[in-house]
Design a protein around this nucleic acid. Structure first.
Lengths: 212, 212
DNA sequence: CAAATTTTTGACCGGATGGACAAACGTTAG
DNA sequence: CTAACGTTTGTCCATCCGGTCAAAAATTTG
């Protein structure tokens, strides 16, 4: 079904990476429509026709970025499994998500942009791969609840709230920094957030028959 | 400093409302750059030059929308005060925010779009009005913590997480619905979310020396 | 080195888009 | 009724933007 594995020269590899890096920067701040090929080309240090030699259409760049993004994006959730202690599993999931918001904010914003506009390009993926992945994890979480290892609550909305709170620090970064001001909004803000989220979720999820 | 109060005919009032309503729809789904005057004009049932008779520039429409939005948007936070019971106050704040996500998702997305793109048009407001409003409320929350009425935690990130979790249901609505599927993702999803968030925040915030 | 291949560029095209403008049309007040 | 004012529209323009193309420049291959 896929295109035959395209043979690529060294230059093609490098230039394509350069373009994708530049495009990530531009798309994530201006959205798909807001970004222009010229902008991306300039950010990548090449001319527009040159860029179009490596990617024939603007959409092709965007598609490639989105596909890559989703692979890494769902990594942390995939790793959530039921072998370890539930609270430890959830803690490290929250950590990893927050680290991704810190280390890959552009990817997060690219994704947010896509969803905000109705997910026109990735709807099938949301309804397919993502949905079934979440269902799988929901089953695990439900198991923990049945076993009394975490408090009973809605597993779907638990996952949503973890997504929301962690991605907030990437997507709404300017707002977070503006509100916190120069000192609180410095590099330490992610550690503060990590501490807070851990307290919020883990204390909230601890089974009530066990003293805090 | 402001423009002298513009006198407006009845028709101007009505048509301007019509345009703003249409523009909210278009801007919130396509972003500022992605939206075209033609689209807005068509959605408002008038010709492009006609629309430009009421708003001279595309930016003027957007600005007006953003200004209106912010007034109502910060309403719930403004109402948070320290006269009532802390947990009740927080509960109703979360409720109100979630209701706004449900009833005004386009406004939420418009705001999200703006922030995602670096808040170019509202940066001063974030650093001014919003920042000081949050500081005021943080002081209230800190008072509650000192009085032992809620558990000690980071008040700034508490506010951020309430924003994040509630707005998520507006901004990421397509994703939420796609993941939940037709039955869980139906009209009941906001009630499920409300129940979950209440449990998450209020149980998590309850002082620990009082049995759950 | 020379031929073959890949990469880069300048010039160009067509359509979309924000906006201007004057003329036509409608409304209202005297 | 008519003059003044408010509203609507068709037409037009300049710019931007995605994308093409042929030819020049650079690189690889034999």
């Amino acid at each position: 079904m896929n295109a035959p594995a395209p043979r690529r020269t060294r230059i093609q590899q490098e230039k394509r990476e350069l373009i994708l890096e530049a495009a990530l920067e531009v798309f994530s701040t201006h959205g798909f429509r807001g970004a222009t090929i010229d902008q991306i080309a300039e950010a990548a240090g090449m001319s527009k026709p040159n860029l179009l030699y490596y990617f024939r259409r603007k959409e092709e760049i965007h598609e490639t970025l989105i596909q890559r993004l989703l692979d890494t994006w769902l990594g942390p959730l995939r790793e959530l499994d039921d072998v370890g202690d539930p609270l430890t599993e959830l803690r490290s999931y929250i950590r990893r998500k927050l680290e991704m918001a810190r280390d890959y904010p552009r990817e997060s914003r690219l994704f947010a942009n896509e969803i905000l506009q109705g997910a026109p390009r990735i709807m099938p993926l949301l309804e397919g791969e993502l949905k079934s992945l979440v269902e799988e994890k929901v089953a695990i979480i439900k198991g923990w609840m049945r076993a009394g290892k975490i408090v009973r609550t809605d597993p779907w909305h638990l996952i949503f709230s973890i997504w929301a709170t962690t991605q907030h620090y990437a997507d709404f970064d300017v707002q977070v920094r503006a509100v916190l001001g120069p000192d609180l909004g410095g590099d330490g803000r992610f550690e503060d957030a990590a501490r807070f989220l851990e307290q919020l979720f883990l204390d909230g999820l601890k089974p009530k028959n066990i003293a805090g």
